[in-house]
Every structure is written in structure tokens, then in C-alpha cells.
Nucleic acid binder design. Structure first.
Lengths: 139, 139
DNA sequence: TGAAATTATTTTCCAAGTCAACTAAAATTA
DNA sequence: TAATTTTAGTTGACTTGGAAAATAATTTCA
């Protein structure tokens, strides 16, 4: 099915699965006109208030400068707004707007649907094993 | 350790592991001044001759326009060269140069070292299970 | 305290990626 | 076989990403 040269590298197996999964999720999100990472940001903000840019960047797996620019776009789309932190004036606390929360819920459905499709390729045992193994590789 | 909102999504677990692995490999490759994908291209060319651009794009997990431009750079770095395919004049067969093969071998060492590090986080059984599960998710 | 070091975020500048349109060759079919 | 469609690859306009520098607030500690 594909070139033999790279099979055998864990990093390649991981990249292959990631690419496949990422592509299908992004295809679904396209109609929402929002990046996958933007949705992740909104989910994080929804469950944990007063997240800083730094904490968010780690959580959603992007670098700080990339986050800054993505947040600029989200602000101009009215999804979030910036608030200077009380305790430390260098920090920014992002706040989800009502529109943001609304959009987040719409998008969540699609991501969950897609995750269902993925999960359907594995049985229950395999799912938890996979999550566990991926976690071991993460840092 | 990290925000709860996204745990539970396979897509996120996968993205997290991929990000971690990708970042550490890319850090190693930095000194070679070559992209990870460029190395993958060279490995593919080394084991299978007369690969077309289309086949390569799939193998190394990038889109055709991205591949075209990456190959432009590789050509001007003297790593590969383009050859119009005999059988079908629309197709391109990439050829690895001597310099390309040499560089490939140097880089391979680093990628293998990094893969060793990753593999060290899992025991033998887990490694093959992981590869198998990732394969099931890929398409 | 106040100069120096550290931390959080953004900006700048440039490299790389994407989508859609384009060129050219091959395959189809009427 | 000539017109049409399909396929392979590239180009162009535009967007996004990244490294390093810049800005600004906080901490450290002499």
C-alpha cells in the first residue's frame, strides 16, 4: 500500500495516523469557518476560566506567537475577548463570548461525530490501550 | 497536568503525541538544515526508484503543491533532480543525487536515535500494539 | 530601593502551506 | 481521428506558522 522505507519508524506511524485523523476532522470543520485549534481554545476556556495565553498555548499544542495571531482573528470574529489579568498585568485572560460558546457547541458535535467514526475502528479495549500508549509518548 | 476539556478525544491524544514526537525530531534535524519531510522523500527514493510526485506526496504525507515547492528547494540544494518519466510525459521521476544519499544517511542516524528514545518509553509488546492501532486509524 | 534578570505576550520578518486556477500530456469516446 | 474529459504536476495569490527580537510587567537581590 505504501513505500516500505519509512514503515518501522514509530514517528512515521504516528504521523500517518495523525495526518489521516486531522484531515478528516478539518474537512468537517471547514463549513464552520473555524480552525480546529480555535475550537480547542474555546473548549478549554469553557471548562477552565481565566486561562492565560501561555497555558492555552500548551493545552492546544501551538506556539505562543501562533496563538497570539489566532486569538487576534478570534477576537475580530467575536468569539473571545482579551482581558488583562488582575494579579499580573503581563498576563492575558481570554474570555469566551456568548457567540463563541454557541459556535463551540455546534462545532463540538462535528468533532464528536468524527471521533465516533475513529473510535469505531477500534474496540473498547483497544481504545483505552491506545490512549494510554499515546500518553506515554507525549513528553 | 493539562486542561480536562479535551482529554477523551482520540484526535487530541493523537495530536498531543504527534506534536511531542515531531518537535523532538525536528529539533534534531535542525542542524542538518533539512526538513523532516525532505528526509522522508530521500528515504523513499532510495528504496524505490522511479517514484512519481503523486506517489511521493502520499508517502510523505504532504499535499502535491507543498511537495512541488519542497522539491524545488531540494533541487537547488542539489539533493535530488527531476526527470520526466519515459512512459508518461506528465509524470516526474525524482532521482536522488550522490549528495542526497550522503545527507540522507547522516540524517537517518539522528532520526533513528530519536526513534530509539521514543521506543524506550514502551516495551516490546507495547510497541507492536501501538503500531498496529495507529495503522487501524490511518484511513 | 533600584539596577539586573526573568517572565508573559506580542511584533516583525521571512519561510512554508493552502486553495484554486493553469498547463500540458494522456485517455476516452463519439 | 478530432473533440472532450481526465490526470499529473506546477504556479500564483493569499494565509498561516516560526524564530528571534521587542515590549512591558514582575521578581530578584545587592
Amino acid at each position: 500500500m505504501q513505500n516500505k522505507a519509512l514503515d518501522g519508524y514509530i514517528s512515521y506511524a504516528l504521523a500517518t495516523a495523525h495526518r489521516s485523523v486531522d484531515t478528516s476532522i478539518k474537512a468537517r470543520l471547514k463549513k464552520h469557518g473555524v480552525q480546529l485549534e480555535a475550537w480547542r481554545i474555546m473548549e478549554c476556556l469553557d471548562t477552565e476560566n481565566h486561562l492565560t495565553m501561555g497555558a492555552l498555548a500548551k493545552a492546544v499544542l501551538i506556539n505562543p506567537p501562533t496563538l497570539s495571531k489566532l486569538v487576534d482573528r478570534m477576537v475580530s470574529d467575536g468569539l473571545v475577548h482579551r482581558l488583562i489579568a488582575e494579579s499580573d498585568h503581563r498576563q492575558i485572560n481570554l474570555m469566551l463570548t456568548d457567540l463563541g460558546r454557541h459556535r463551540m457547541l455546534q462545532i463540538r458535535k462535528d468533532v464528536e461525530d468524527q471521533d465516533e467514526v475513529l473510535i469505531g475502528k477500534l474496540d473498547g479495549r483497544e481504545q483505552s490501550v491506545l490512549i494510554d500508549l499515546l500518553f506515554k509518548l507525549s513528553n
